[in-house]
Each structure stands twice: as C-alpha cells, then as structure tokens.
C-alpha cells in the first residue's frame, strides 16, 4: 500500500498536506491531486489509489459523495476544517479524519493506523455516508417577483405566506409584499411540502411561521403568524393539518 490522492478545493492546503506526507510517509506516492468533485472522480477512476484524502466541502460534489464512488479497496481519510456533525459521526464509526490545520502528530497516528489496517469496513462507511450526504432536493428556493421589467428575487426562506390573487399570487414576507406571475397551484407543486402547507384554496403558509391555530365550531382554523400581524383562516378541508398542533 503506497499510493494516494489528495482532494481539496484549496490548492494551498493540498500542497500543505502533500508536503507533510512527503516528510512523514516518504514511501507514499501521491498519484495526483484535485480541486473539485468532478476532477476527483476522474482521478479516482484513472489511478485507483490505495488511500484518498478527501476534503468535505468542495464545489460540485462533496468529499462525502466522492467517498461513495470510490473503489472497494481504497481507504478514505476525511479532512475538514470544522464540521461538528460529520466529525461526531466519524468518531462513532471509527472512520479516519483529520482536522485542518493538520498537525504532524495527528497525521502520524493516522498514517500508522492506515498502515496496520487491513481494509476499511465498506458497508459501515457507506451507511454512515448515507446519513451525512444531504438528499438532493429540487424544491423552489428563489421566487422571481414583480410584474414590470424589474424582477426582484425573494428567497423561499423569507416567505411567510402566499395568497392567490386572480391568476397571480401575492407573496408576503415579514416586511414586504410582492406579486408573482404564477398560480398558487403551480407554486404548491414546486414548494417543499414539509415547509409549506396549503391551508385554503387560495392560501399557502410557511409552517414555521404559524404561531397558533384555533379551531372554531365549523372545523376551520384561525392562524396567527409569527412575523406578520394578520390572521389567516384555513378551510375545513385542510383542518387535518392542525390536528396535532
């Protein structure tokens, strides 16, 4: 076992690690380096290295995603500056990782472990990565608003609720109101259903903006909002949404 690749979007850090490895593990041959996910995948395919040092945050594919695509025999060492969530997961499953800036002593420990380790437990690694790699979601994140020539962008994170306005839709944020050239039905299809609820034929509300829901005798709910003063009325058809509130 004596070949490796280093993947980091910051060339300085690739050089830094390569330099340290050259001193602490002279027989190791660094076959190549890559600065983004796409290059890394090509490199892996071409070189079939024994060890891959992977930065977690990179443009394109993340280090975690690259690890999933590695050949069975390649051992993975993750390198990260600060990633509490991932580091805790690595700790739990004994996956090797290095924290930047990489110290000589920590790298030495990692090297001896790599040398003595037969092979990494692939299944465990893949299982771990499944939990860490964010699932691809293509929900709407930016809304183009405005009816004249100037379009403004509004992030869906800022929206409190949407209200149908004839064939257009009004968008309400804590401080503003905009108009979108889209029907409320089209918007509903594009929004994340975990974050936005349709509460009425003509209304969609952001779930975490709902402060309270009060039921009346006819099964409709009156909603108060966290960051807007008006109250919204749900129709009875959507009452089931609030049962658990």
């Amino acid at each position: 076992m004596n070949t490796a690749i280093i993947v980091d979007d910051e060339q300085n850090l690739v050089d830094y690690l390569a330099d340290k490895l050259a001193r602490l593990w002279p027989e190791l041959e660094v076959l190549g380096t890559a600065n983004n996910g796409r290059q890394a995948l090509a490199l892996v395919k071409e070189e079939q290295p024994d060890v891959a040092f992977l930065d977690i945050h990179m443009p394109g594919l993340s280090g975690l995603q690259i690890a999933e695509a590695l050949p069975q025999d390649t051992k993975v060492v993750f390198v990260t500056a600060f990633d509490q969530f991932a580091v805790e997961a690595f700790e739990r499953s004994a996956v090797d990782y290095l924290l930047k800036p990489v110290s000589d002593s920590r790298l030495q420990t990692c090297i001896s472990r790599l040398k003595t380790m037969d092979r990494q437990n692939r299944e465990e690694l893949v299982k771990l990565l499944k939990g860490l790699v964010p699932q691809e979601q293509n929900y709407l994140r930016w809304i183009r608003t405005g009816l004249d020539d100037t379009t403004h962008l509004v992030s869906t994170d800022e929206v409190v609720y949407f209200k149908a306005d004839q064939k257009y839709t009004s968008v309400f944020t804590p401080t503003n109101e905009y108009l979108v050239r889209k029907s409320i039905k089209d918007l509903e299809d594009e929004l994340d259903p975990a974050q936005f609820w349709r509460i009425h034929r003509g209304m969609i509300v952001r779930v975490d903006q709902i402060e309270s829901a009060r039921r009346d005798l006819r099964g409709r709910y009156t909603l108060t909002l966290r960051e807007r003063d008006e109250t919204l009325r749900s129709s009875a058809t959507y009452g089931h949404l609030f049962k658990q509130m």
Binding site: E10, N12, L13, D15, Y16, H57, A81, F82, D83, L99, K100, P101, V102
Partner: peptide, 12 residues
Amino acid sequence: HFLFNTLSNVAG
C-alpha cells in the same frame, strides 16, 4: 469553518 480554514491556509 472560515476561521479554521484560514488558519490552515496560513500554516500552509
């Protein structure tokens, strides 16, 4: 993340 990354760069 930014702080540690910057320090690593300086180290490098």
